[in-house]
């Protein structure tokens, strides 16, 4: 029987994968993908927990996040294109401008 805990474990795994991606990747596009994975991991958790409590607000939040994520991707990808046009690369080491 697949219970709420299985969903949560899946969510946790996906979140970790996304988190590792955020930490390890150097390409901005890949970073975007990784954040999407993390967002969707959270969505799974919301849906599962909402279902478990019989509360619709969990699924509502999941939809809400999907909508926000979509618009964010739209804006973000636009910015990425501009960055690519400016630097010719999306590698973080290349486009960092502060010398610290």
């Amino acid at each position: 029987m697949i219970g709420v805990s299985h969903y949560l474990i899946l969510s946790g795994l996906l979140f970790s994968i996304g988190f590792m991606g955020v930490l390890r990747r150097k390409n901005l596009l890949m970073l975007f993908f990784a954040t999407e994975v993390m967002l969707n991991a959270v969505n799974i958790a919301f849906a599962a927990v909402g279902n478990y409590y019989g509360d619709l607000s969990g699924q509502m939040f999941a939809f809400f996040i999907i909508a926000v994520a979509a618009s964010e991707v739209a804006v973000g990808l636009g910015l990425l294109i501009l960055l690519y046009k400016k630097y010719g690369s999306l590698d973080l080491d290349v486009i960092s401008s502060m010398k610290g």
């Binding site: 930490l23 150097k26 973080l92 080491d93 960092s96």
Partner: peptide, 14 residues
């Protein structure tokens, strides 16, 4: 720490 590299910022944030 303040090296302007987003990747290392993210690492520190994590």
């Amino acid at each position: 720490i303040q090296n302007g590299n987003l990747s290392s910022y993210l690492n520190w944030m994590g």
